[in-house]
Design a protein around this nucleic acid. Structure first.
Ligand SMILES: [Zn+2]
Ligand SMILES: [Zn+2]
Length: 199
DNA sequence: CAATGCGGGCCTT
DNA sequence: AAGGCCCGCATTG
């Protein structure tokens, strides 16, 4: 009887300490959990104030990926990588596709590429594009933090995105190649090719 | 070409 | 000191 009760208490304490090990840490702690019983599967859309512990083998974690458009930002701490959200690119006239969906483009991560992007037109209605910035963290963009420690990669996010999800990296890449193919076969482009062949 | 990371430097609180 | 951010440069794919 007593033995059973003790075991139950022990199990609960194990649970509690396990839970503490998994969640009671902050990215800024001097020491992070060393004995993690289980790592998380990569989270593509981390939102709100969440923390994850990934395996150092996880390719997505290694590359500090996110389907949110996150850009590197200088926090003067080489141990902890900080990224902040760029929001989402929307159509300036709020058009919808034929199947009733809104345009939520992925902001280019590179500053220069983003400036170019904002001069382009809506792929659906040809209207102007607008960058909807993220204000999910006290009026500032949501931030993500990454830290490699031993065989783990610790992730922590601060803030809740106050905007729609952008296209994923893959969707954005696909859109670009389609656009590229379109221009390559456009009448003007074909005409230019002819001219170059003659020369 | 663009994604990603680094770090000097500047600004405001 | 801390946080946000701009910018140029390097690496990677
Ligand atoms: Zn549009
Ligand atoms: Zn955001």
């Amino acid at each position: 009887m007593l033995k059973g009760a003790d075991a139950s208490v022990m199990e609960q304490e194990d649970f509690a300490s396990q839970h503490r090990e998994m969640t009671s840490w902050d990215i800024n702690d001097i020491k992070l959990p060393q004995h993690v019983s289980q790592t998380d599967w990569f989270q593509e859309w981390p939102d709100s104030y969440v923390k994850h512990i990934y395996s150092s083998e996880d390719k997505n974690a290694q590359r500090h990926h996110s389907s949110w458009a996150m850009r590197n930002t200088n926090n003067h701490n080489s141990r902890i990588l900080k990224k902040s959200c760029l929001g989402v690119v929307v159509c300036g006239n709020d058009c919808s596709t034929l199947d009733g969906r809104k345009i939520y483009l992925r902001p280019a991560i590179c500053d220069k590429a983003r400036q170019k992007q904002q001069r382009k037109c809506c792929p659906n209605c040809n209207g102007p594009l607008r960058l909807l910035s993220c204000r999910g963290h006290g009026g500032y963009p949501v931030t993500n933090f990454w830290r490699h420690e031993g065989q783990f990669i610790f992730f922590q996010s601060k803030g809740a995105h106050d905007h729609p999800r952008p296209e994923t990296k893959l969707e954005a890449e696909a859109r670009r190649s389609i656009q590229k193919a379109k221009t390559a076969f456009s009448p003007t482009s074909l005409r230019l090719k002819r001219i170059q062949e003659i020369e």
